[in-house]
Design a protein around this nucleic acid. Structure first.
Lengths: 263, 263
DNA sequence: TCACATATTCCATTATGTGGAACTTAATTT
DNA sequence: AAATTAAGTTCCACATAATGGAATATGTGA
C-alpha cells in the first residue's frame, strides 16, 4: 500500500515527504498564505496541517508574520549558503567562468541538471554589482535554455527519450521548442558540441552553451554565454562556441571527470 | 516526557526536528561525510540513521556523491532563492542600500536578528562583480558585528539581559567584546543611535551600523557600512553615522514599522 | 451583544518511525 | 584464492509520534 507508481507518486519519504510538499507549497506561492488558504489546497485535515505548519515554523523553515500568515523562512538561507559554498562543481568552475566572462564581455552562467530542470549555480556579469540570488538557485526549463539543451545532448538515446516524454512544453516565445523540434535539433547539437538558444526562452536573448558531464553521467551540467540578441548575432554565437566548449573542457579537467575513471 | 527545558532541549518538533538536526550536521561539516562518520556523531542507531539519510537524499536536501558520501543538496538553493526573493525587508531596503553605497563608496550590509545571530540578507559592493552567496545567508555572531550590536541596543532591558546570558563569547581579535565590555557599551550605542565596530570581528575592518525594528519588536535588524580601517577612520565613521541612521529610518518608513501601529 | 469566520487544542486510533540484529556487499589481508 | 575485517543495507516486533474529526478558543464586524 502507498508505493503505487502513478505519475505523481514518485517518492516514499514518509512524514518528511509530506512536510516538504507543504514547504514547497508555501515557498512557491505568490505571497504570504493564511492558514485557511493553505488548508484549501494542501489536502490535509485541519489538525494535521496545523501541527505541520507549527513544526516547520519552529524549525525556521517557515516564518509567521504579524498577521499570522506563513512565508518561507530564513533558516533556508543559512542551509543554502553552505550548500553553495561547498559545491565542488562551482568551486572548480569559478575561475574558468571569470575567464570566459572577461574574454566575451557577456554574462556567463553555470548550471546543473536536476530532474527535468536546470538549476543555476553561478553567474558572472561584467559591470555593476550583481543581484545574484535573483538568478542562482532558480530552476529553469531544460528545453528552452542553452545549458539545458547542451545537457540533453549528451544523454544516451534511451535516457533522452525518457526525458523528452516527461517534459511538458510551455511556450515562452514564438521560438520555444516543441517535443518534435527539440528532438530534431539534438543530433546537430551533439555534433557541434554546443547548443544555441535564439530567443527560445526570452525574447531578445541569445545564448551559447556547452555540456559538462562525468563518465557515468551521475553528473550533468553546462556553461553558457548569454546576452542581448542585437549583440550576440549568429556570427558572434559562432565565434564564442569554441571558447565556451574549451571552458567546459577545462572545468571537466578540473573536476577530473570526462577523462577516464576517477581516483 | 521529552519536553524538559534543559539548555539544549528547546524545540519539540517531533520527527522533523531530528531530521533537521541531521541535515544541519551534514551541512555544517567541513566536507562530504560517509555513513560511518555520521553514525559516530549523530547518536542514532544504524537502522534509523540509514533511513533518515535516504529520505533526506530522496527529497534533495542531501546529495550522495559517487563514493557514497553525503553532502548538502541543491534543493536547498531553490527553496532559499525563493525565500530571499520574497523577503519584504530586503525588497524594501534594496534601493536605500544602493543609495547608501553610492554616497559612501563603501560596502553596505543588511542583516536581521535571528536567535543569537545576525543573518545577512543583502550586500552591495561598489566595484567588481560580487560573490554574493559567499556572504548572504551567513550567520555571524551578534556581539562583534556592527549590525548585531545595533540590534542589541534596541532590546528592552530584560530581553537584553536574557540575550547576553545566552551568548558565548569567542575571541576573534584583540578588540572582540566580552560580556562586560559589551554590556558597558550598550547605553552609548543607544544614545548615539548607531554602533561602531572597530576590528572587533576581523582585524583591519571597521563598520558603522544602525538598527531597524518594528514596534512590537517581532522584527529586529540593521544596516551597516563596512570597509578597511585605514579608510574608515574614526572621523569617517562619525561622518557616516548620520546617513546610516537615515537609511535605517527610510527603510522603516518603507516597511511601515517604527512609526506607530500597522494597517 | 450576537453572529460568523478563522485559528488552535484535544485525544482515541492507527500509521510511521524506531533500533537491535541479521544479512549483503566491498575492501584488505593472509 | 580464501579468509578476515570493515562498511553499508535490510528486516521486523515494538513503541512512539502522526493522524483527523470534533470541540474549543480567539478574533472581527454587524
Amino acid at each position: 500500500m502507498g508505493a503505487r507508481k502513478g505519475p505523481t507518486e514518485g517518492r516514499d519519504t514518509g512524514t518528511l515527504g509530506k512536510l516538504m510538499a507543504l514547504l514547497d507549497l508555501v515557498t512557491h506561492a505568490e505571497g504570504p498564505m493564511r492558514f485557511t488558504d493553505i488548508l484549501a489546497v494542501a489536502g490535509q485535515p485541519r489538525g494535521t496541517l496545523h501541527r505541520q505548519l507549527v513544526h516547520l515554523a519552529e524549525e525556521g523553515l517557515l516564518e509567521v508574520d504579524d498577521d499570522g500568515r506563513y512565508l518561507p523562512g530564513l533558516r533556508l538561507l543559512d542551509l543554502a549558503s553552505r550548500s553553495w559554498a561547498r559545491n565542488e562543481f562551482r568551486l572548480v568552475a569559478e575561475p574558468h567562468l571569470a575567464a570566459l566572462q572577461k574574454l566575451t564581455g557577456e554574462t556567463v552562467h553555470l548550471g546543473v541538471l536536476r530532474g527535468t530542470s536546470i538549476i543555476y549555480l553561478d553567474k558572472v556579469e561584467g559591470q555593476q554589482p550583481v543581484r545574484m540570488y535573483s538568478q542562482i538557485g532558480n530552476a529553469s526549463p531544460i528545453y528552452c535554455t542553452g545549458v539545458g539543451k547542451a545537457a540533453l545532448s549528451i544523454l544516451p538515446p534511451e535516457r533522452l527519450k525518457a526525458m523528452l516524454s516527461e517534459l511538458e512544453f510551455q511556450r515562452f516565445t514564438p521560438n520555444t521548442h516543441t517535443a518534435e523540434t527539440l528532438a530534431a535539433e539534438m543530433d546537430e547539437i551533439r555534433d557541434r558540441g554546443c547548443a544555441f538558444d535564439r530567443e527560445e526562452h526570452e525574447v531578445g536573448i541569445h545564448c551559447v552553451a556547452a555540456p559538462i558531464w562525468s563518465d557515468n553521467l551521475s553528473f550533468i551540467g553546462g556553461v553558457s554565454v548569454t546576452g542581448p540578441a542585437y549583440r550576440l548575432t549568429m556570427e558572434r554565437l559562432q565565434d564564442w562556441a569554441k571558447p565556451v566548449r574549451e571552458t567546459a573542457e577545462n572545468i571537466m579537467r578540473g573536476m577530473r571527470i570526462g577523462l577516464g575513471p576517477r581516483r
